[in-house]
């Protein structure tokens, strides 16, 4: 059954068409990787799914809820969909434990103790329990991104969205973050991941979407995509990033 459905999404900034008639879906337990050149609209696309970017036309349905409907309780919906950002976006004034607890307490109304306990368990899972009392600015980029993943998981999300989670990281830190994501995928989490890490896509993706100039150019099973991409643009893109 489809957890996330996008039907004919379009969006413009002034004259610029960021998204043009995009349709796709993510089934429960599926991992979908979105790739494409910069400016292709992939970051915008993933942010429409939890309503961070409004759309001009089309429908987005997440677990039976239409995102763009005026009656939709967006905060409630967002609390059920985890998101990880390119620049981590931890809250700099809160220590790591508090970063994990804030939304659990304020949105899910969990007790402070329960939130802290849950946070510690997740920190342990991403291998950062020892850093619980530190502040985000005292951690490396890779560590911060692992905390950001833990922060999203603390909300018990039904799906996770990743917006270029490794592209702001120094090369030696990329794998520690990808390892956490691979593990998450193997545990059966529904994931949509915007990334250029084709190794990650090969390892865990079920499907790969290729975007260019606001359009979904190719949407294929992983093996088909890497084996014989149909569109010329996807072939060019792949040859560029796989050579290097």
């Amino acid at each position: 059954m489809s957890m996330i459905t996008l039907r004919d999404i379009s969006k413009t900034y002034g004259d610029f068409q960021v998204l043009s008639h995009c349709s796709t879906w993510v089934s429960k337990g599926e991992v979908v990787v979105v790739c494409g050149p910069s400016g292709s609209g992939k970051s915008t696309l993933i942010k429409t799914i939890n309503g961070l970017e409004p759309i001009d036309s089309g429908d987005i349905i997440v677990d039976g809820t239409t995102v763009s409907a005026p009656t939709t309780n967006l905060p409630l919906l967002r609390s059920r969909v985890g998101m990880v950002f390119q620049h981590f976006e931890l809250f700099p004034h809160l220590n790591i434990r508090e970063n994990l607890a804030l939304a659990q307490v304020k949105v899910l109304k969990r007790s402070k103790d329960a939130a802290m306990e849950k946070g510690m368990a997740l920190l342990d899972r991403v291998g950062l329990a020892a850093h619980a009392e530190k502040f985000p600015g005292q951690l490396s980029g890779g560590q911060q991104q692992r905390v950001a993943i833990a922060r999203a998981l603390a909300m018990d999300p039904i799906a996770m969205l990743f917006d270029e989670p490794t592209s702001a990281l120094d090369p030696e830190m990329i794998n520690e973050v990808l390892d956490v994501m691979v593990e998450l995928a193997r545990d059966g989490m529904t994931m949509m991941v915007v990334t250029h890490e084709m190794g990650f896509a090969r390892k865990v993706a079920n499907r790969v979407i290729f975007m260019d100039r606001g359009e979904i150019v190719e949407d294929a099973d992983k093996d088909d995509f890497f084996g014989k991409p149909r569109s010329e643009r996807a072939q060019q893109f792949l040859s560029k990033i796989l050579v290097h």
Binding site: N50, L76, F91
Partner: peptide
């Protein structure tokens, strides 16, 4: 503050007033 901070607060399900109260203002004041 970066636009991402506001998005991160909202992506966790905080309402806009909560995002200001717990995420944006504490840092802006500092």
């Amino acid at each position: 503050l970066s636009r991402g901070q506001k998005m991160a607060g909202q992506a966790l399900g905080l309402t806009l007033p909560q995002t200001y109260r717990y995420v944006l203002l504490p840092v802006a004041y500092r």
